[in-house]
Each structure stands twice: as C-alpha cells, then as structure tokens.
Amino acid sequence: MTKTNRKKIKRYMEGEVAGLSIFLIVIVIAFSLASPKFLTGANLSSMAIQLPELGLLTLAMLIPILSGGLNLSITYTANMSGLALAWTLQAFGGPEAGVEAFILGCVLAFSVGALSGFVIGFVVAYTKAHPILVSLSMMILMRGIGEFMSHGKDITGFPQFVQNIGQGEIGGIPIPLLVFIACAIVWHIILSRTRQGFGTYMLGSNIMATAYSGISTKRNLIILYTLSGLMCSVAGIIMLSRFNSVRVGHGESFLLITVLACFLGAVNPFGGFGRVVPVVLALIILQVLTSGLNILGSNQHLSTALWGIFLIAVMVLRWAWWRFSIKIK
C-alpha cells in the first residue's frame, strides 16, 4: 500500500460513519414508502430480536480482524458453548433445572469459548502460524467434537426462565438486543480505552515494531483471541435461549456474513484500523435490508445475495471515491 493510499483510507474511514448513516436513512425511508408494514412495532421488534445473533458473532470476529487475523471458528465455538450449557441444564433435570444450574452452565459455556480462543491465540502467538489456518483447524475441531458428542441431533428441553432470556423484553426492548448493546459498548471501551485495545491496533499494523516498542504482543494475541472466544459464548447462550434448542451447525451461514459486516463497517482487511460504531451501523443496514425485502415478499436467500452485492457496491464506491480524490488533487 502506498503512502497516499494510506492517507486516503484514513480519510474515508472518518467519513464512513456519515456515509453509512445516510445510506441507512435512505433505505429506511425507501422501505417505509414501499410498504406501510415496515415502520410498525411488529417489524421493528422482529428486527431487534434477529439482529443480536449476527451482531454478537460479528463482534467476536471484529477483534481478530483488527489484529490482522481472522477467527473462522466463531460459529462452532458458539455452538459448543451452547452445548456446554445445554448439557449442564439437562444434567440438572432439563426443564426443571434451577438458576444455579444455569449459572454453572454459563460458566462452563464461557470456559469452552475462552479455551477455544486461548488455544488459537497461543498457537498464533508462539508459532506465528497464520490465524486463518489456526482458526480454521479450530473450527474443524469444534465442529468435530460437537457432532461427535451430539451426533448431529438437536438438544432441547430447557427451563422456562432460559427461554425468557431469549424471548423476553425489558422496558419494551428485547433482552438479546440489550445484551448486544452492552457487549458492543464493552467492546468499544476495550478497543478505544485500554492497553489491550491499543496493542491490538498496533500489532494489527506491524507486529514486530509493536514488540520492539515494549508491548507484549504474545500476551495481547492470546487475550484478544480469548476475548473473541468469550464473545462466541455470549452468542451461543443467546442462541440457545432464543431457539430453546442447540444444534451443531446452527448459525454456520453467519460465519462469512460476520466478515462481510466488518468489511462493510470500514474495518481494514489487513488489520490495524476499524471501530465498533461503523460495524454496528453496517449490521443494522444488513438487518434492515433483510427485513425490508422480507416484507416486500422476498426471502432470506435473496437478501443474502443482496448483502454480497451491497458489499461489492460499497467497495467499488470506495474505489471510485479514491480515484476521484486523486483527480481533484
């Protein structure tokens, strides 16, 4: 990447929040004009329920991308965390299990997520293997263990209060959405205001120079993948409570969408640059596109295709803007 390129990238990263917000407003207006059903409470609350799953997984993907890597194991790590919780609940009587069982299960779920992330981080930090490969093998491993232990079946039958987490509301806002908002805020603070976040950006740009500056890059890598794993656990628990079941492979199709959402949210594919706010905006745009098209009578698959087209369109626009800004200079 040339010098001028970098300057350009920085400039339109700053304009990114504005650009994405304007686009969001435009499509919201377009869908409201196209269908009176779009701006109704029912649609808004269904959007609010659907967004968190993809959103939580995207947060899990975001930090590894900022560090110049990827975590391809997020969906299956979420599944495995869900399974850990499900088994604990079943061991304590399924629908009759108490709150203590749920808490124990969550602890186990978080342990599974943290362990998965820790192993990835450890291998990446100490062997310098490419994160795509390490997390890919972790994905295959998690999928394998999950399928082996669940034999590909759904696991269901949980206490009512667990379902309430996934389907309930507080003050009219669905609980999963509140969880997502809380997680996004935590992520924002970690990235912008902590040593860990600072180190993640730095090593995403140049890991050797970061190590020379006296930042422990190995520790940072291990922590960042562990954080990613923990966020997978949150996603796994929310998915369990929302569907009242766990199946290995659930949410599999989200994997590449999370990467797509990050790129859409102006995260630099090479690492080092990107923020939580534009990524959340990108997620909302994807959700609005899906719900809007759904109301207009289309299905999920068409929106999947449109997400892809949308990503290409945004990248082409960024390219055109870059070309244009060279010309006028």
């Binding site: 140049n206 120079a209 020379y212 500056s213 930042i215």
Partner: peptide
C-alpha cells in the same frame, strides 16, 4: 519495519512505549 509503525498515527507511535 521495526522502529515505527508506519501505518499508525504519530500520536499512537509516540505513546506506544509509555501507554
């Protein structure tokens, strides 16, 4: 490649040793 992180900002480079 070792002394400074070229992509990052001046302030982040400066602060990286005394975070």
């Amino acid at each position: 490649s070792l002394g400074l992180i070229q992509d990052q900002s001046i302030e982040n480079n400066l602060i990286s040793t005394v975070l």
